[in-house]
């Protein structure tokens, strides 16, 4: 998106024009959804997160300062939403675990799906795909973010740096560590089941 077009879209969004909303969704929907699937490999949850992201983008468009590109800002929101969801799910699982220990039933914990099957992975690779995303989810938050944005969504390292508000060198280090940790974790897994 050129700078001029971005300015026009921004002005239309501030004027609450329906066409601008529609355009932004058409333009970014797939990338946002794919990013969400990288963090949360479950189509239903990813679609909910995608929806929440656009709602927040439209609701807080007046807060967009224009320091970064509009797309960078959108993916900052996407990343924040996904990480918040993952934290919430972890907290919820912990709570459900303790409740089960003390004998209290936690029916709402069942509402959060544990199945993680990325719809973009072929059915014959389902098992491998589940293991892969399980191990990606175990990476530290920053490594996971850099890895998902770069390796799954395909952002350049400079774009990842902009989205994560880090220096390019830092993102490089995070990516290398993420790849190394992921490989080790997978090797360990296959060693254990051998």
């Amino acid at each position: 998106m050129t700078k001029k077009l971005e300015q026009e879209i921004l002005a239309d969004l501030l004027a609450k024009k329906e066409s601008a909303y529609q355009y932004l969704i058409d333009q970014y929907q797939q990338k946002v959804l794919n990013t969400c699937l990288g963090f949360v490999p479950n189509l239903q949850d990813a679609e909910d997160l995608c929806q929440d992201t656009f709602v927040e983008v439209f609701r807080s468009i007046h807060a967009f300062k224009g320091n970064a590109a509009l797309s960078t800002w959108i993916f900052q929101i996407t990343t924040r939403k996904c990480l918040a969801f993952i934290r919430y799910r972890k907290r919820h699982k912990r709570k459900a675990f303790f409740q089960s220990l003390v004998g209290l039933d936690a029916p709402e914990s069942r509402a959060i799906s544990d199945k993680s099957f990325h719809p973009g992975i072929a059915l014959e690779d389902k098992e491998r795909g589940e293991i892969l995303f399980e191990k990606i989810a175990l990476l530290p938050e920053k490594q996971q973010t850099a890895f998902v944005l770069n390796r799954i969504e395909g952002f350049e390292i400079t774009e990842v740096a902009d989205i994560m508000q880090l220096k390019r060198g830092t993102v490089d280090v995070l990516l290398n560590r993420a790849k190394k940790n992921l490989r080790q974790s997978l090797e360990q897994y296959y060693r254990n089941i051998a």
Partner: peptide, 20 residues
């Protein structure tokens, strides 16, 4: 295990984009 891990990581190259 190294080969298995390699094959699993190779999946990243073949992930299809979700439908809109």
């Amino acid at each position: 295990p190294e080969q298995e891990a390699e094959q699993t990581l190779a999946l990243l190259e073949h992930i299809r984009r979700p439908a809109e």
